[in-house]
Every structure is written in structure tokens, then in C-alpha cells.
Amino acid sequence: MICYRLRCGRGHEFEGWYRNSATFAQLQADGFLSCPECGHADIQQALMAPAIAKGREVSAPAPQDAAPPAGMVKDQPGRPVLPDQLVAALQKMRQVVEERCENVENRFAEEALRIHHKEAPERGIYGHASEEERIMLEEEGVDVLSIPWVRPADS
């Protein structure tokens, strides 16, 4: 995973986590990124200080009653509630995916493999895959991105 400091065309800064730099570049090129504050789609990387590892330290797991990260609140033990801006960004992502991609439901792994092996037309798809299917797809070299599937914005 890689964390980028990002800036929208209106100057709002925020962080984004991506599987790798290629995933970020593809999402940016396809117009899947938007500012969680204003929704602006012109997203660029902002300057940030590099993280420098000082050795292999293992941190102790956080206690169950630890405070949630900044911007998050808990409504049930161990289950954070997403901040409104994050929910809005995920709703926008869901809308774009539903508009531009085909829902293959529980046939996701099968269809992703068919596309990867050029046995089906190349296109964006979404649906459900088990953890075993995700591992198999990764081993086959199929790029898969899992995103939280929040309720639609109009519900």
C-alpha cells in the first residue's frame, strides 16, 4: 500500500491510499478520483515528506477500547462509523462504477479471468468475489481493487 498526499483543483488537500503507484495512475486517468470535501475531479499529487524506516519494529496491538483515529467515531465496539466526507466520496465512487462498469454479480472471478485471458471483451466489471477467488485472481496476475460498497447517495 502507498499513501499519497493529494490536492484538488480548488486547493483542498487530503490523503489517499492505493495498492501501488500504477493503481493510483489508472484511477486518476479514468477519472475515478474526486475531492472528498468539494467533489472536484481534478486531483494531483501534493508534495509530501518521505517516510524513512528506522528498522523493523513491531507495535503492540491497540486495546479494544482505544480511541478511534481522528475523524472517526465508534457506534459499536470495534466498528468505526465513516465520516460524512468519506461516505460522500465512496458514494460518488459507487455511482461512477455503476454508470461505467457491468455488474457481473457472483460471476466476478470467472468473468475477470475470461477478460484477462482475452476470452471476453475488455471492459470494466464489478461484483462479488470470495477471499479465495481474490487470491486466485492475484496469483493469475489479474488486477483487482476492492472498495467499500456504501449505500447509494439517493437512499
Results as ranks from 00 to 15, higher is better:
Lys74Asn: 14
Lys54Asn: 10
Ala62Cys: 07
Phe14Asp: 01
Cys8Leu: 05
Asp42Lys: 10
Ala89Gly: 06
Phe32His: 12
Arg7Ala: 13
Pro69Glu: 10
Cys101Ser: 15
Thr23Pro: 00
Ala153Asp: 05
Ala109Met: 03
Glu122Leu: 13
Phe14Glu: 01
Ser34Asn: 15
Pro61Thr: 10
Asp143Phe: 09
Gly78Pro: 08
Asn103Leu: 01
Gly127Gln: 04
Pro148Lys: 07
Ile135Phe: 10
Glu111Gln: 14
Tyr18Asn: 02
Glu133Pro: 09
Phe24Asp: 01
Ile115Asn: 06
Ala129Phe: 06
Ala25Ile: 04
Glu37Ser: 15
His116Lys: 11
Ser59Pro: 00
Arg123Met: 07
Glu13Thr: 14
Arg5Trp: 08
Gln64Cys: 02
Ala89Thr: 02
Val81Trp: 00
Gln64Pro: 05
Ala60Glu: 13
Ala88Glu: 07
Gly11His: 05
Met48Leu: 05
Gly9Val: 03
Glu110Ala: 13
Gly11Pro: 05
Glu122Ser: 13
Asn103Trp: 01
Glu110Cys: 06
Ala109Leu: 04
Glu37Cys: 12
Gly16Gln: 06
Pro77Asp: 06
Val87Ala: 07
Glu13Lys: 11
Ile125His: 03
Gly39Cys: 08
Gly55Glu: 06
Lys54Val: 10
Thr23His: 14
Gly31Val: 01
Glu37Gln: 15
Leu82Glu: 02
Glu13Gln: 15
Val87Cys: 05
Ala153Phe: 08
Ser130Tyr: 06
Glu13Gly: 07
Glu15Arg: 10
Val96Phe: 06
Pro61Asn: 09
Ser21Glu: 15
Cys3Glu: 09
Pro50Gln: 05
Pro77Arg: 07
Val81Arg: 12
Pro152Gly: 07
His40Cys: 12
Pro83Arg: 04
Pro152Ser: 10
Leu27Trp: 12
Met72Trp: 15
Pro36Trp: 05
Ala112Arg: 01
Ala25Asn: 14
Met1Leu: 12
Leu6Ile: 09
Ile43Tyr: 03
Val87Asp: 00
Leu27Asp: 10
Val81Leu: 12
Thr23Gln: 12
Cys101Tyr: 15
Cys8Asn: 02
Leu86Ala: 08
Asp143Thr: 12
Gly141His: 09
Leu27Ala: 14
Gln85Ser: 11
Asp84Gly: 14
Val58Cys: 07
Ser21Trp: 00
Arg10Ser: 13
Pro152Leu: 08
Val73Gly: 05
Pro83Gln: 01
His40Glu: 12
Pro69Thr: 03
Gln44Ile: 03
Ala25Met: 11
Arg19Cys: 03
Gly141Trp: 09
Trp17Ile: 11
Asp30Asn: 13
Ala112Lys: 00
Ala70Tyr: 06
Glu105Asp: 13
Pro77Met: 03
Gly127Asp: 04
Asp75Thr: 11
Asp30Glu: 15
Cys35Gly: 04
Asp154Ser: 11
Glu119Tyr: 07
Val73Lys: 09
Ala88Gln: 13
Ser34Thr: 11
Ala70Gly: 08
Gly11Met: 02
Asp75Met: 10
Lys92Ala: 15
Val144Gly: 04
Ser146Phe: 03
Gln45Gly: 00
